[in-house]
């Protein structure tokens, strides 16, 4: 087994993830790119586990499992933040998020109007 093949694959996947994080405007696509980067790190860990003789056996695979758990927690909290952002601003574009000013009290009221309307209509449709 040539270890250079999975290593180079992981490096290219990490580069693609970096490109996606910097390039994408949609917050969900940014999260997808972050998943690519986490997978590249996992691939490095598993490849190192099979190629490098370490003092603790299978440390790389254990760390890969830990990173998978961390990624699941990250994507849960991240998607909750994205949905809250959509509820407040009716948009998930990451470059339209104002970082300095606090959201004005009138701003959440107007974009939050469509989602309850659809919830009401679907609820009515179910009935």
């Amino acid at each position: 087994m040539r270890p250079v093949i999975p290593y180079v694959t992981a490096a290219l996947l990490f580069g693609l993830g970096t490109y996606g994080v910097l390039r994408r405007r949609n917050a969900i696509l940014v999260l997808i790119a972050v998943e690519l980067m986490l997978n590249a790190v996992n691939l490095i860990l598993v490849t190192a586990d099979t190629t490098v003789r370490s003092q603790l056996p299978h440390g790389g695979q254990v760390f890969a499992l830990f990173v998978i758990v961390l990624a699941a927690a990250e994507v849960g909290v991240g998607l909750a933040i994205v949905l809250q952002l959509y509820r407040m601003r009716a948009s998930v574009a990451v470059d339209e998020v104002p970082l300095a000013e606090p959201p004005s009290p009138n701003a959440p009221a107007e974009p939050s109007a469509p989602p309850p309307a659809t919830a009401a209509t679907t609820g009515e449709a179910d009935r």
């Binding site: 290219l12 996947l13 580069g15 970096t18 490109y19 910097l22």
Partner: peptide, 23 residues
């Protein structure tokens, strides 16, 4: 969906190809 991004291509490609060359 995208920002106009030559910096992103530069940084991403540099990261990926640099790490690949290192490995």
């Amino acid at each position: 969906l995208d920002r106009p991004g030559w910096p992103a291509a530069l940084i991403g490609g540099g990261t990926g190809l640099g790490l690949a060359a290192l490995l």
